[in-house]
Each structure stands twice: as C-alpha cells, then as structure tokens.
C-alpha cells in the first residue's frame, strides 16, 4: 500500500508566498487531479513534493506498507529513490541524447535497474514509435512523441507514485487526449498512484477518480468523485465562464 499525503503546506519563492496551507492526498491506485489555471500554485506544490523547493511549513509524507516516510528536507534524488517520479512540465528531456539513452537514464535508481529489461520492453510495447526511433535524438522528435518519451522515461524508474505536471502544455488537442488516455492505461497496467496537475479541465476529468481545485494557493474545493468536480460551481466560474 502506497499513499502520498500533503498536509497544510505553505511555500513560495523568497517574499512571494504562493501556497497557503494546501492539503491533498493520493491513495493507492487512485488518479487524483489538481485543477487550476496558470499561476495558482499547481507546479509549486509539485516542486515541494519533489524537494525542488523547501516549504516554509507543513508536512509531506509517503506511507509505504504502513511505514511513514517524511519527504520534507530530503533531496530530490532521495525522493526519486523512494519511488516518487515526476513527468515534469515542458518534458525536460535530454535533447542531445537518443531516445534509448533518455529511457535508460530514467532507470538510474537502483530499484529500477533490476527491472530495466522488463520495463524497457513494456515501454516499447506501449509506445511502438519509441522503439522505431530509439536511436534518434530526443530533441528531433515532435512534441507529442516527446511527451510520450517523458512519460515512458518516468515509468522506467519503476515508480510507486507518479506525478504528472501539465502534460497537455504545448500539444495539439488530439495529442492531449492521446497522452491523457495513455496515462490512464499505464496507471491501470502498473497499478500506479497518480497525482496530476492540469489546467485542461475536460481532459483531466476524463481519467480522474477525484480531484482538487486550487485557487490562489488554496484548495477551494475537493471533489470526492469526478461527478462532484464536474458539477461544481467554481468550475463553472473558472473554466466555463458562467
């Protein structure tokens, strides 16, 4: 059993406070979405979980088989080694390395190295295009292919918890649906726990089990089901303009 809990996090950049007491959690096997438009703190929260920013107060911890592991204060490398992997916003591939080299770098952590062959063939099975292009430089692929590679690279790390930050940014609508559908498929196949930050409401709610709406650094609404999210007044206000 794996569970990610974020509790009452305050964080920001220097004097600019971005998060004001945010609490979210993702339980084993769930896909939880964090919805919000630009500048409301989604990425900041993700960065806090990954140890890229230190929160000023609050707790972030994993529960792995009943054991509690605090993440605040750990380095990003440590957090990744615990089995939390991020598909970063903007993909952050290594453009001058080949597709295969990018995938193998994803499997750097010791637990992932043991499963490298199995995970590599699983990735190629899910994304046949990556197998065809494994010798090609990552930077020379199209945006959609790069997003596929970013997701595949994260899976190579054999994650327990998968964080996905804005997978839809910079992609054509048809590719957005495809990427979102792939995340759902992978989540089911690998029994992952997924926390996804996204501003594309319609796409995100397609695969979410439940979710949160974040506005100005606070969780303004928690939808216990997708239905609650879809019917919420805030959503109408922020997304549909009614």
């Amino acid at each position: 059993m794996n569970r990610l809990v974020v509790s009452d996090i305050h964080a920001g950049y220097g004097a600019v406070r971005v998060l004001h007491g945010v609490s979210v959690e993702a339980n084993q096997g769930e896909t939880v979405v964090l919805l919000g438009t630009n500048g409301n703190g989604k990425s900041t929260l993700i960065k806090c979980i990954m140890g890229l920013i230190q929160p000023s107060s609050g707790q972030i911890f994993l529960e792995v088989d009943g054991r509690r592991i605090d993440l605040v204060g750990r380095s990003t490398e440590d957090i990744v080694n615990l089995g939390v992997t991020l598909v970063p916003e903007g993909r952050r591939l290594f453009p001058k390395l080949t597709v295969e080299e990018n995938l193998l770098l994803g499997a750097y952590r010791p637990e992932a190295r043991r499963e490298i062959d199995r995970n590599l063939s699983a990735c190629f099975e899910t994304f046949p295009i990556l197998q065809q292009r494994k010798r090609q430089l990552a930077g020379s692929m199209s945006g959609g292919e790069q997003q596929m590679l970013a997701v595949a690279r994260a899976l190579m790390s054999e994650p327990k918890i998968l964080l996905v930050d804005e997978p839809s940014v910079g992609l054509a609508p048809i590719l957005v649906s495809r990427v979102i559908a792939t995340i759902k498929e992978l989540k089911e196949r690998h029994n992952l726990t997924v926390l996804m930050a996204e501003q594309n409401f319609n796409q995100a709610t397609k695969i979410a089990d439940r979710g949160y709406i974040i506005v100005h650094g606070k969780i303004e609404f928690e939808g216990r089901t997708t239905r609650e999210l879809v019917e919420n007044e805030l959503v109408k206000k922020f997304y549909l303009g009614v």
């Binding site: 490398e77 290594f94 193998l104």
Partner: peptide, 22 residues
C-alpha cells in the same frame, strides 16, 4: 549509468535530479 548521466549533465541538470541522479 554514470556515463549516460555524464553525457546528460550539462543539458539539464535539474531534470537529471528528477531521475535520482546527483
């Protein structure tokens, strides 16, 4: 693994941290 990380490090060192590499 070290070798591949060496080839990646100047391209995006923060992304490398997200792979669990210092």
């Amino acid at each position: 693994f070290y070798g591949r990380a060496i080839k990646a490090v100047s391209q995006d060192s923060q992304a490398l941290r997200l792979m669990g590499v210092d």
